[in-house]
Amino acid sequence: MPIRKLSANFIAAEQKVAARKAELQANPLLTVPQAAQWLGVSVSTLNRWRSLGRGPASEKLGGKVFYPLSDLQAFCSKA
């Protein structure tokens, strides 16, 4: 049975997934409640900061908000 060659697009997508997994291991994403607890503020305060563009940088994945740990650390070092 012949082995099929993988398409270049498939290989590129697999490489992107592997790179993202490695990035997330080095810099985990925290949920809004986790980030609020880490910062020592309420969830509503963190949400207000995000809506005003004042708080730490966040990412949206699948419609949910996450905070990279490195961005929370950078935000605390600035404050």
Results as ranks from 00 to 15, higher is better:
61 L>S: 02
54 R>K: 15
36 A>Q: 04
65 V>S: 01
26 A>K: 11
37 Q>P: 04
38 W>K: 13
16 K>R: 15
37 Q>T: 14
47 N>C: 08
62 G>E: 05
50 R>L: 03
69 L>R: 12
66 F>R: 00
61 L>N: 01
28 P>H: 11
68 P>Q: 03
17 V>W: 07
70 S>N: 09
33 P>I: 08
33 P>S: 10
41 V>H: 07
62 G>S: 03
41 V>W: 08
25 Q>V: 14
14 E>L: 12
30 L>A: 10
17 V>K: 11
57 A>Q: 13
50 R>M: 07
60 K>G: 00
27 N>Q: 11
36 A>K: 06
17 V>E: 13
67 Y>K: 00
62 G>W: 04
71 D>N: 08
53 G>T: 06
34 Q>K: 11
20 R>E: 15
68 P>M: 03
56 P>V: 01
71 D>P: 01
42 S>L: 03
20 R>S: 13
37 Q>F: 12
68 P>E: 01
46 L>S: 02
64 K>G: 01
19 A>F: 10
45 T>K: 12
30 L>K: 09
22 A>E: 15
51 S>I: 02
67 Y>A: 00
42 S>I: 02
13 A>D: 08
49 W>P: 02
48 R>E: 12
20 R>D: 14
39 L>H: 07
29 L>Y: 15
30 L>F: 12
37 Q>L: 11
52 L>W: 09
31 T>E: 10
61 L>H: 00
15 Q>K: 12
15 Q>H: 11
58 S>T: 02
28 P>Q: 10
64 K>F: 03
13 A>Y: 06
23 E>W: 08
71 D>M: 07
29 L>M: 12
32 V>I: 15
33 P>C: 04
30 L>H: 11
19 A>W: 07
67 Y>I: 00
14 E>A: 14
35 A>P: 05
70 S>A: 04
53 G>C: 06
49 W>Y: 14
18 A>L: 13
41 V>S: 03
25 Q>S: 11
27 N>V: 06
24 L>W: 13
66 F>Q: 01
46 L>P: 03
33 P>H: 10
53 G>L: 02
15 Q>W: 10
42 S>W: 05
64 K>H: 11
49 W>K: 03
52 L>N: 13
45 T>V: 13
43 V>Y: 08
29 L>D: 12
38 W>R: 14
58 S>N: 03
44 S>F: 06
28 P>W: 07
